[in-house]
């Protein structure tokens, strides 16, 4: 259920150039999903060890541990809001959390991609979707 509030909308706002950074993030999640299907979710532990973003590091380890759904959402939302981010860094971390929750749920790539391109904004989502689906098996 989408439960918007004004502060959230304000904090998510950022420029179109910045939002282009979502492309590589989505590709990263496509790779992670592929890895879990091939090697299993415990393989995310080694990905977590290499991750530089603290939220991604923590999230990957939680997913490997079997935390998913609302529990994962609530834990990651708490971590996310512990930092006073806004604009592009906030949008990026929101998309990271969305990707982690989708990964934990075992979503197929088309679903994962659709959940994440939504953060790109309606005006650009379609073109990014076509671009990513052209690359994703």
């Amino acid at each position: 259920m989408i439960n918007w509030n004004a502060e959230l909308a304000k904090r998510l706002a950022c420029g179109e150039d910045e939002r282009r950074g979502l492309g590589p993030l989505i590709r990263r999640f496509i790779d992670l999903a592929r890895k879990t299907r091939k090697e299993g979710y415990l393989a995310l532990e080694s990905e977590a060890a290499q991750a530089e973003d603290p939220l991604l590091k923590v999230g990957l380890r939680l997913v490997a541990e079997g935390v998913s759904g609302d529990d994962l959402e609530d834990i990651l939302a708490t971590y996310l809001l512990a930092n006073d981010e806004k604009g592009w860094p906030f949008l990026r971390t929101c998309a990271t959390v969305e990707g982690l929750v989708s990964l934990a749920a075992g979503d197929e790539n088309p679903i994962l991609i659709r959940k994440l391109v939504a953060y790109y904004g309606a005006d650009r989502a379609l073109s990014l979707l076509q671009e990513l689906e052209g690359q994703s098996p």
Binding site: N5, L8, D74, T78, L81, A82, D84
Partner: peptide
């Protein structure tokens, strides 16, 4: 995902910084 973030913002986000 927006659900958990929006709810946490509505509760008043807690920051451990201080």
């Amino acid at each position: 995902m927006i659900r958990a973030i929006a709810e946490a913002i509505a509760r008043g986000a807690m920051r451990p910084g201080g």
